[in-house]
């Protein structure tokens, strides 16, 4: 036989649970939503390193509206002359093809689509664009075969990495957000890292001009 005290206790406990039930439900729902958000955004684990593939040259890859076929890299040192200080530059050779299947438009490669990754937390270095057939910012025609090109990066004079890493960015064929009242026609923009290519370097010293 339970006592009257026990019955009263049970009644009070029942009341208390009922009074706070909604708060508990909300709290549980909040925890569930939080868990879902964390799951969707990629979990607790910190992402380390890069999120794109690292490839070794020679390699062919497509990024945005261009197809790159990386071949070699060369560090070229220019000794100081009477009027110019010593300089170093990194020249990367690749075959470049226009694969703009959306617009079929003649276009020259924009310099910021190739970036040197110096490592050690240093800032990325933009290329100067593609030089093909001795013309800087050569215009590539859609439908024609790949053209051998070079891109230059200005590097410090003591730069002597035996393997350099070049970040390749690709534009995306998409429209701006129409909900913001912008045109919903797609166009090439929003470049995003596509891959990192590792190339072995050779060092060459340019002769002084006479």
């Amino acid at each position: 036989m339970e006592s009257l005290d026990d019955v009263i206790d049970a009644m009070i406990a029942d009341r208390v649970i009922h009074r706070h039930r909604r708060k508990w439900l909300i709290a549980i729902a909040a925890v569930l939503v939080l868990a879902l958000v964390i799951f969707v955004t990629g979990g607790w684990k910190e992402k380390k390193g890069r999120k794109v593939d690292t490839l070794k040259a020679p390699v062919t890859l497509t990024a945005g509206r261009y197809e790159f076929g990386f071949t070699s890299a060369e560090i070229i040192r220019t000794p100081k002359t009477t009027y110019d200080p010593a300089k170093s530059r990194l020249v990367v050779s690749f075959d470049l093809k226009n694969v703009d299947t959306e617009k079929h438009e003649t276009q020259s490669l924009s310099g910021d689509l190739l970036q040197l990754v110096p490592g050690h937390g240093a800032d990325l270095i933009d290329s100067n664009g593609a030089t093909c057939r001795d013309q800087l910012n050569y215009k590539l025609v859609y439908g024609l075969p790949a053209v051998p090109c070079t891109a230059e990066f200005k590097v410090p004079n003591d730069f002597k990495e035996s393997v350099v890493e070049i970040g390749v960015l690709g534009e995306k064929w998409e429209s701006d957000n129409a909900l913001l009242g912008l045109s919903d026609k797609p166009y090439w923009h929003n470049e995003e890292a596509t891959a990192v290519v590792q190339l072995e370097t050779t060092i060459k010293t340019e002769k002084k001009d006479k």
Partner: peptide, 11 residues
């Protein structure tokens, strides 16, 4: 007709 757009190339 195929939709290609060509630009003037002379530097």
């Amino acid at each position: 007709d195929d939709g290609n757009i060509y630009e003037s190339v002379a530097e």
